[in-house]
Amino acid sequence: MTTSIASTASARPSRGRRAADLLARDLPDAILMVLDGVGEVAVVIAREYLVRTMVLLRDHPDTLYKVPLLVTAVDWPDREPEAPRFDVVYQLRSLHHNDDCRLIVQVTEAAPELPSIERVFAGMDWHERETFDLFGIEFVDHHDLQRILLPDDWDGHPLRKDYASFGEPVAFTHNLEWALPAAERPRDMPGSTR
């Protein structure tokens, strides 16, 4: 098996083109959009096809994306309601074809959930927990979806854009409401977790 793994660089097309081509051929319904830029192709796929797409990309001899690199999210709060607020980003690597690909699933603020793929890639377990922890995105069917980096009793999800990063609220006599627990604080105040 080891001999078939690419060991040297060769001139190659945009990274991820391989995945986009295979999906266009075998699972065209899954593709919502193909983004191309900076030498990398990202495929936006439909949420209901996520698990099937992952299994296909992992097992098909043309792709063999067997290494889960990361799961994360990007928050675009101004995009709603025209488009869903969160991009959930998956990056996979194929050692056999020396390629990596990016898949994006968009989820809305009202229902930030999508199926877990920890059963497809064991390594996605912690990455999904991290994304849940920092973005509040729910991975349905994950066996142990709990915070991983932050303490269990933490309020809010810090990597959301509306989570203030600077200036912890300090309560003085003129703004005693700032000493309230995070959930009861006024919405527009610094440090509000919304």
Partner: peptide
């Protein structure tokens, strides 16, 4: 591979994958 293990830990298992060679 399934766990996303990389580096010397992956190469210790006999997979000759090094990004310095694969994607210089």
């Amino acid at each position: 591979m399934a766990y996303g293990v990389t580096g010397p830990t992956l190469r210790g298992s006999g997979v000759p994958y090094d990004l310095r060679k694969a994607c210089p």
